[in-house]
Structures are given as C-alpha cells and as structure tokens.
Write a protein that binds this DNA or RNA. Structure first.
Length: 464
RNA sequence: GGCGCCAUAGCCAAGUGGCUAAGGCAGGAGCCUGCAAAGCUCUGAUCCCCGGUUCGAAUCCGGGUGGCGCCUCCA
C-alpha cells in the first residue's frame, strides 16, 4: 500500500507501527452548524482509506473527534436559548445522520473535547512545568513555538517574517505561538481547572485525546495515520504535532494525509465565503449514495469542483452498476473473483487511485453484461458477479441497496400503483399490436419521470 | 510578503521518462427492438505557451500565462 504523505510530500510505502493493527485519527467537525459537502468529502475520503485497509485485512482503529467547544459554538449559543450540550448534541446527531446517509462507516471512537478536559489540563500543566508553555498577564496560556526545535518541520509553511493578517495578541512571544488555554472572558463558556477558569484552545484537544484514547505509548510515533482537510495542515496539525512532541516525547503520527477541497465555481467552499452547500440540502435532491459516489469519484487529494452536471454523470455511472445487479437479482454469491479483487486492491493501494479502481469496475460490468447477453442462464457466472458486487460494496460502500428499490427512490406507493397500472395497460396494447396507444402510454410514463424497458422478462421501469 | 498546488479530448478524469495517452458522460455509426430504453460493438485528444535536458517527455529542469489554496476559524 502506497500513500501520499503530505509532510514528506511524496508517495511512501505504508508500513504500520504494529501490524496488522492500524490506528487512524481524522480531525472531525466543529459542531456549530450542519455538515457541508466539504465535511462529507473528507469523511468519505478517509472512509475509503479505512475500507481499503480493512479489505487488505488490516485491523483498523478509526477515531474521529467532535470539537464541541470553540468561539463559533459560543457565538451560536448566544443566538439561541440552548445550553452548550443541547446545541452540540443536536449538531453531532445531525452530522452522524448525514454521514450515515452517505454510507460513511461510524468511527471506532468518537471522543468529544468537553469530555476530555482532564487530559488536556494534564498536558498543558506538563508543558507549563517544562517551560514550553507560558501564561500571559491575561491568564491565557500559550505554547512557545520557539521552544520546539522541530516546529514547522511538518508543514514547512511557517512564515518567519510574518506579515500577519490579523492583529496579534501583544502578549505572544512569537507570532506562531498559539493558545492552549483561553481564560474566561465576558460572554464565555468556562470550565474550572487548575489552569484557572477558562476553556481549551482548539489544537490541544486532538493531541490530548489521541494520547488518551488512541496512542501507542512506547513507540516513536503515537499513531499510524493522522488525516484531515488540507486547510488543517497549517497551523492546526503543525501545532498538534508540536504539542505532542514536546509533551510526550513522541511524534504524533507516522503518516499525514490531507484531502483536497470541494469548490464551487472554482472557489473553496467555506462558511466564511458563504458558498457552503449543506449535505442535508443536497440529500433533499439526490440520493445519499449518488452523492457519495460523486464525491469519491475524484481522487481525494484533488479539488473537486461541485456541479450538478457532473453529479448526474456520476449517477449514470452508478446506475450501470445497479442494472447489472438487477440482472443477477436473487442469486446467491459464490467467491469473489481473485484477479478482480487483486486488481481493485492494487489500484486502491496506489494512494487510493479511485479512477483506476472505477475503470476496473466499469470493465467488469461491461464484460459481465456481454457474457450475460450471450448466456443469460449461466448460474455459476451469476454467482460470481454477485460476489464481485459484494466486494465492491465492501470496498467502496456503493451498490449495497436492493437493485430494484434503487431505481424507485423517490417514488411513493401511489405513484407506484399508477405506474404499474399504466404498464399493464401498455402490455395489453402491445399484445393487440396497438403501438400507437403503447407509445402514448410510454410518453405518459416519461412525463411522470419514469422510463420503461421491455425485456424478455417483461417490462421494467426506472425513475429517471 | 512567505509557502504551496493545479492546467490532459465538448465535460469529468487516470497516466509523472519509452508499447497504438485508461475509464466515464455527451456525440456519431451499428447489433438488438414493433419502435424505444437497457445492454453490447466500433468511433475522438499529442497532453496551456516558450526554451532546455535526453536516443526518447504529457511525464524531468528553467521561464511565462491562467486558475486556486494556506499563512485568521475552516474538512
């Protein structure tokens, strides 16, 4: 398995610290609003990584945090009458619902910042004792980046000269110093601790929760892979990395992986730009699986420029998979074809080369259809097709639905009855060779958003 | 100002030194069909521009042009 390590900026051979186990940490969302497509992309990208490793028989422990205390959450809190917990619980559940709809496997561990304040406090205290962190006259605690000789070795994005775009805290010793603990201000949410009244900075939660829940303790690296959006590379991951290095005398992660953005008209989708596309809104129009397929069909490190046309193209590609599945409906799986499995794992093993993977799948679909055209009753072959489809489902999280229901998404019972009625009328007309009527009924169905296909087994229909 | 990414057919998108530049969508032709749909077969690009390295480059190096990102919260 080769992966692209964003710190080394090259493809490297993946070799876990303690095989067959693989420990992965992905930076999760700050829960103050609904998930947008960028969150979905990141979640799907590393869900794919996880599934690939699992298909390669690694034992994956997958952890993703929820940042449930931060400036924006507090701001949102002031706009509502909710408590912190009510607000964050709501968005955590919303996030999980959205990710479920997208077929993202639930993480093994889902820690929340506010439930791990104890370990953050310990880590910060230890950094204070070592003289790596310092307290300002305003009782904020900062990490002194000049005390970490390897600071900036991860992202290599630090700007020593520092043309800062914001007014820096005058009590900071270095421009790259960052808050570990923010003292209690007005209109704040505060926790009491030995560090004083306040709340943790953003970066410390990841280091602390990884140390507490996921880390190997006597190895050079605490975990195998740390992942997240490329926007987190600097400063977030640089800072996490510095905290762990100085507090624990271990490097945080052996490999770092970052996913590219979802863009809209070429610009990064972000809440501050106001061009966010929420997952929940996309789900009103498109099936979650179609959305998943669309978001995973571009390599995870590239930017993906979201647009409806490409999404519909993705749907057509997924439709083909389900049409094949329909042709082998009710057949039990035998064994996945070994060459097919091998080819897919090789492709995914090239830093998740999804394009190559999908090309292999399309080729399989095409060959299977061709052979079924010639020999529709080859039961053994059908059993293998089913097994192959099941493997695809396991690897990519697509094609798991019932093949008939997939094409009926968005059709309610009433419409379904009407469709069936019209189809049987059309069948009668066809028997009488009344093709004018048959074609008129076909047009009527089309106007209902239904297309029909006459096959030797009768007339089948699909929602367009 | 610092650091970095990207540019392949109408669209999406692999390929990063060497067979005829994957795959999908759209388009065209055919088989099948009452006609369609679906499926199958066939069909398209010399890789943003200029210069260099090399026997050989989309692929490496230099210089342009265009687009984007991080350096503030951000997946």
């Amino acid at each position: 398995m080769k992966i692209f390590d964003s710190s080394k900026k090259k493809l490297v051979e993946f070799s876990p610290i303690n095989p067959p186990e693989v420990r992965i940490y992905v930076c999760g969302p700050t829960v103050y609003d609904d998930a947008h497509l960028g969150h979905a992309r990141s979640a799907i990208a590393f869900d794919l990584l996880r599934r690939t490793l699992e298909a390669m028989e690694y034992k994956v422990v997958f952890m993703k945090n929820f940042t449930d205390i931060d400036d924006k959450i507090i701001k949102k809190l002031h706009q509502t009458n909710k408590t912190l917990e009510e607000l964050t619980n709501y968005y955590i559940n919303r996030y999980l619902e959205d990710m479920d709809a997208l077929g993202v496997l639930r993480p093994t561990l889902e820690p929340r910042a506010t439930q791990n304040l104890d370990i953050m406090e310990k880590m910060i205290s230890s950094l204070l004792e070592k003289g790596i962190a310092y307290k300002t006259p305003k009782e904020d605690i900062y990490f002194d980046t000049s005390k970490d000789s390897k600071y900036c070795s991860l992202s290599k994005k630090c700007d020593e000269e520092g043309i800062s775009r914001i007014e820096p805290d005058p009590y900071k010793r270095n421009s790259t110093d960052f808050a570990l603990w923010k003292s209690c201000k007005e209109k704040d949410v505060c926790f009491s601790s030995s560090l004083g009244e306040g709340r943790p900075g953003w970066h410390i939660e990841c280091s602390a929760m990884i140390y507490k829940h996921l880390a190997y303790k006597d190895t050079p690296y605490q975990i195998d892979i740390h992942a997240g959006g490329i926007d987190l590379f600097f400063p977030h991951h640089e800072n996490e990395s510095a905290q762990t290095r100085t507090a624990c005398n271990q490097e945080l992660a052996k490999y770092w992986m970052h996913n590219g953005f979802v863009t809209i008209s070429g610009e990064k989708m972000s809440k501050s730009l106001g061009n966010s596309f929420f997952v929940k809104d996309a789900l009103k129009v498109y099936d979650g699986e179609v959305l998943r397929f669309y978001l995973l069909s571009t390599h995870y490190r590239s930017d993906l420029n979201f647009n409806e046309e490409d999404l519909l193209t993705s749907k057509k590609r997924l439709d083909k998979l389900y049409r094949l599945k329909k042709r082998v409906y009710g057949v039990k799986a035998s064994q996945v074809e070994s060459n097919f499995k091998k080819a897919l794992l090789e492709a995914m093993g090239e830093d998740l080369n999804i394009s190559k993977t999908l090309a292999i799948i399309d080729n399989f679909i095409s060959l299977a259809n061709e052979r079924l055209d010639k020999n529709p009753k080859d039961k053994k072959f059908k059993q293998q097709i089913v097994a192959n489809l099941e493997f695809i489902e396991k690897l990519l999280g697509i094609g798991g639905k019932d093949a008939y229901s997939y094409f009926q998404i968005g059709v309610d019972e009433e419409l379904k009855r009407k469709i069936e009625e019209l189809i049987s009328k059309r069948e009668e007309a066809k028997k009488r060779k009344d093709f004018t009527l048959a074609d008129r009924i076909r047009e009527e169905l089309r106007s209902l958003g239904i297309k029909v296909m006459d096959t030797p087994q009768g007339t089948l229909w699909e929602k367009i």
